[in-house]
Simulated assay, not measured.
Amino acid sequence: METFAENMELLADIFELLFQKIPRGIFEPFAIGAVVGGFFSLLFSRRYKYFFFFFWGAILFMLAWRLAILIISSRYTSFLIYPAVILTVYACFEAGRQLKKRTRISRTFCRLLPLLILSGIALGCLGKTFHWDPYEYHREGAYLTIREQMKKYDKIQVLVSNGDARRTKYYTGAVTRDIPDVTTKVLQQEVRNFKSADTVLLLDVIESAAAPMLTKEELGVPESAEWERIYSSYTNRKERRKHNIYRYRIRVP
């Protein structure tokens, strides 16, 4: 059973890498273009087969090397931007060539299509570059808060929602554990099950911005216990979700 669970966890990590971290790290249009370009390279690139054999070998080597040292953030997949751009450009021009070859669409349109697609992607890149998000570094603020708590208290355990426990441990060095997406029930269960008087419990969670802070009575913990929100930031400029850190500590008389 343990082996099965480990295999499922590995499979989940691979899916997260392929469908979340890599697209976020190299900009989604390039991720899509790279997939299309890779598909075209297998179907139509007989003339350049040796180039693509080397090209795909280099990509797989870089990816395997990064996996070996553990990809914990999208930024660690940014090295794939170079092959992604090449494959995207190839996909655009190959699409125009195949349309001209296999359809009766105007030759002028087939020649212009790759330039139009690439122009749209370039505009998207410019828009993303100048799209300033005042809450872009909310995670860094949370890591700083946790490190400050580690200086203040000898023993700290951090419960992290949204599957970010491994990343939080990497950047803070704290003892971490994943919990499900946070709800009132999850917070109540985790706080009530925590019994260690010599350890401080931090709950690092992403929740709705409209969610009120639970009181001690709602959590069902002793009035003498310490329950405080020590960090709060919106996760993006839409201001619909908040990144909060709560501190729970049992006070011994």
Rank of each mutant, 00 (worst) to 15 (best):
K152E: 07
K101Q: 14
Q149T: 14
V200I: 08
K238F: 13
T103K: 06
L11H: 12
I72L: 11
R75A: 12
V85D: 02
Y76H: 15
F30C: 01
T199H: 04
F54R: 14
I250S: 05
N244E: 06
A210T: 10
E94K: 14
I206H: 03
R104V: 03
K100R: 15
R229F: 04
R66K: 13
A84V: 03
G124L: 04
V186E: 04
R24V: 10
E190H: 05
L187V: 08
G38R: 08
Y231Q: 03
T199I: 03
D204C: 07
V221N: 01
L60W: 12
F19D: 06
T215F: 13
F93C: 07
F55Q: 11
F51L: 12
R241G: 02
L219A: 13
Y48V: 07
V36K: 03
R166Y: 03
R47F: 15
A31C: 13
D164H: 12
F27W: 15
K216V: 01
S161W: 01
N244G: 04
R147L: 13
N162W: 10
L115E: 00
A58G: 12
V175W: 07
L116T: 08
T235R: 11
R97L: 13
V252E: 12
Y170P: 00
L10Q: 14
Y143T: 06
A197M: 04
I250Q: 11
I59D: 05
G37P: 08
G141T: 06
Y246K: 07
G96T: 02
N236L: 07
C125G: 09
Y76S: 14
T129D: 00
C125R: 06
R139V: 00
V160G: 12
F44T: 15
L11W: 12
E226D: 11
E6M: 10
L80A: 09
I230M: 00
Y135R: 05
L99Y: 06
I245Q: 02
Y153K: 09
L202H: 06
G127H: 05
R24W: 09
Y50W: 15
S196E: 04
E226H: 10
T176P: 02
I81T: 15
F194I: 01
G173K: 08
R102W: 12
F27H: 15
E207C: 10
M1K: 09
R97A: 15
G37N: 05
V205W: 01
G57D: 04
R240Y: 09
N236Y: 05
P114T: 12
F51G: 11
L43C: 15
E226N: 11
E16Q: 13
V182I: 14
M1G: 05
L10V: 10
S74L: 00
M1R: 08
F53Y: 15
L144I: 10
V175R: 08
I179M: 08
A34L: 08
R229E: 06
F55H: 12
I230P: 00
K100H: 13
I245Y: 05
R249Y: 12
A91S: 14
